[in-house]
Nucleic acid binder design. Structure first.
Length: 559
DNA sequence: CAATTCGGGGGG
DNA sequence: CCCACCCCCCGAATTG
């Protein structure tokens, strides 16, 4: 069946109620290939098998943080619950519970338990209500259940549209889970003193007793002066009313709408909103909550977004405001290698569409948009960029559309790919990324093949068109997320044995914290990881995946 | 009174 | 003029 040589050494590991673990070697079909061993915990088990190639376990977030605490890493893993989510999605059962007990129950035709909520409401945060992983029924043996589900997953994988790609996707998602745990443990270097200095500079000192910062109070007073009445700048309704009274027919208080209004309240108001946002989202409270011992440690959630992009659970790690990048400072003698993938989405589009013209343009490491504008595309770099992004996002009006027909002529296969994806969405069909991650069905979470009730003519309705834009973008953004996982896995591999640590990942950007002496090696490893991931993910194409890389002491000093 | 939605801003 | 796409986070208002 599969011609790939099997990893020499895979081990299944399951935790029991009393904390004990049992583990055994596993063959290529998911059957036990040796005696079951016991250990006091995952640390003891993994330590006893230093040569294990891949650990198969229920969920990386369970045992792996404890392994890291004990100073252990594993080379590779197979995350059953991550795989279950990917397979369910591919099978069109997107929202079905993904836990090991749920997967087992489905195999046996038993009632399927719901998943534990991924994020608890604040009111339930008390230890009393802490919800652990969904429990197996008391009569189920954890290791046997794990192997039963694993074996079935291997079979289901072979039934997917592209089994080889799905195998790769599961491996990549599992590697991502390892990276997420490791990054959280390492933490992003964060100087609380610098952060406080930024807050003091921009917001001024806080008044005693939890009052708002002085600068916010001053700006609020200026707004009130300008209107000649008290207006609370953080209440949109208040502000709209005040502008109406002053003779300006605004419909919202969005920055782009207010920017062009000639009224003395506008400037302090916009400044207030910017600073208010900093104060509430990344102010002193955030600092107290999230920064400990000079490190910011968010909980990353791989595939938290439908497209496969990561999210975080609290801390807003993927929305660090630019003004706070000054606080991300390397340790003495160390540096940050900050690397940003260049024009990732158009390069991904080139690879997944195999469009000859676009592949040729993406076959160089130079700026892709400049390459486009230099060719038979009449327009400058900015216009080329807008046209291409407009095609990927499903732009409906505006300047970028002017060049769309030209794009269509120059890069017919690329445009056809996103157009097909859009049509699929409008017709209520599912689309997949290159590796086979499947978009959620229309009409919300519930999952299992529901048919949109009001979708008689989805192509014609506003909802149908919105769905088309979603699926159009999904195939590109999601395939870029496929690539990013393999890039992380490749980079992680090449950093083993070094002191360098991956400390941040944001869609198309990574930060590695390393001794200054390692920076050149790390930069090379990142460059190599981009192209390696391109070949692994999409097969061999001429498309290159370069990074803009900077070696800096402070995050803000990277381009 | 708690849960949900809205509006506006941040990131890619 | 901006926008299309994916998200997070907060406070206030609204709803059950």
């Amino acid at each position: 069946m599969s011609q790939e040589p099997l990893p020499p050494d895979r081990w299944a590991l399951a935790e029991y109620q009393d904390g004990e673990v049992r583990f055994c070697p596993v063959d290529g079909r998911g059957r036990p290939a040796g005696p079951v061993e016991r250990a006091a915990g995952p640390v003891e088990a993994v330590r006893s098998r230093p040569g294990a190639g891949r650990w198969i376990w229920r969920s990386t977030a369970g045992p792996y943080p404890r392994l890291l605490d004990a100073g252990l890493r594993v080379q590779r893993c197979y995350d059953i619950e991550a795989a279950e989510a990917l397979l369910l999605g591919h099978e069109g059962a997107h929202g079905s519970p993904r836990s090991l007990p749920a997967a087992r129950a489905r195999l046996r035709g038993l009632p399927v338990p719901a998943d534990a909520p991924s994020r608890l409401p604040d009111s339930a945060q008390s230890a009393l209500f802490e919800t652990g992983p969904v429990p197996l029924p008391p009569d189920a043996d954890p290791l046997e259940s794990l192997l039963e589900v694993y074996a079935a997953q291997l079979t289901r994988t072979e039934l997917t549209a592209h089994p080889g790609r799905m195998r790769l996707l599961v491996a990549a998602e599992s590697a991502g889970a390892l990276v997420a745990s490791e990054m959280r443990r390492a933490g992003l270097p964060w100087r609380a003193d610098v952060h406080r200095q930024v807050l003091d500079e921009l917001l001024g000192p806080r008044y005693a007793g939890g009052q708002e910062p002085r600068r916010l109070a001053e700006l609020a007073a200026q707004v009130a002066d300008a209107f000649g009445e008290r207006v609370r700048p953080d209440l949109p309704a208040d502000v709209v009313t005040a502008f109406r009274r002053a003779g300006f027919a605004v419909t919202s208080t969005r920055a782009w709408e207010l920017r062009d209004i000639d009224h003395p309240a506008v400037e302090p108001l916009l400044e207030y909103k910017k600073l208010y946002r900093l104060y509430t989202a990344h102010g002193w409270t955030w600092l107290r909550t999230w920064v400990r011992g000079g490190r910011f440690r968010p909980e990353y959630v791989p595939a938290g977004a439908a497209s496969g992009r990561w999210t975080t659970n609290g801390g807003g790690a993927l929305q660090i405001p630019r003004v706070l990048r000054r606080s991300v400072v390397a340790d003495p003698g160390w540096c940050l290698v900050v690397a940003d993938a260049d024009q990732l989405e158009p390069r991904v589009l080139a690879a997944i569409s195999r469009d000859p013209g676009l592949m040729e343009a993406a076959g160089s490491t130079g700026d892709l948009y400049t390459a486009l504008s230099g060719r038979a595309f009449t327009g400058d770099r900015e216009e080329a960029k807008l046209a291409l992004l407009g095609a990927v996002y499903g732009q409906t009006h505006g300047g970028g559309l002017r060049h769309l027909s030209q794009l269509r002529r120059r890069f017919p296969a690329a445009v056809a790919l996103v157009d097909d994806a859009a049509r699929a969405g409008e017709q209520g069909r599912l689309v997949r990324t290159w590796l086979g991650r499947t978009c959620p069905p229309p009409g919300g979470e519930p999952g299992a093949g529901e048919t949109a009730p009001e979708g008689a003519s989805p192509g014609g309705s506003a909802a149908g068109r919105a769905r088309g834009r979603f699926t159009r973008n999904f195939v590109v953004q999601g395939s870029a997320a496929d690539w990013a996982l393999l890039m992380l896995a490749a980079l992680r591999r090449s950093l083993t044995g070094m002191r360098a640590e991956l400390v941040f990942f944001q869609h198309d950007e990574v930060i590695v914290h390393c001794p200054e002496t390692e920076s050149a090696t790390v930069a090379e490893a990142i460059a190599a990881a981009g192209d390696t991931a391109g070949d692994l993910t999409f097969g061999r194409t001429p498309v290159r995946f370069p990074f803009s890389t900077a070696v800096v002491k402070r995050y803000c000093d990277a381009a």
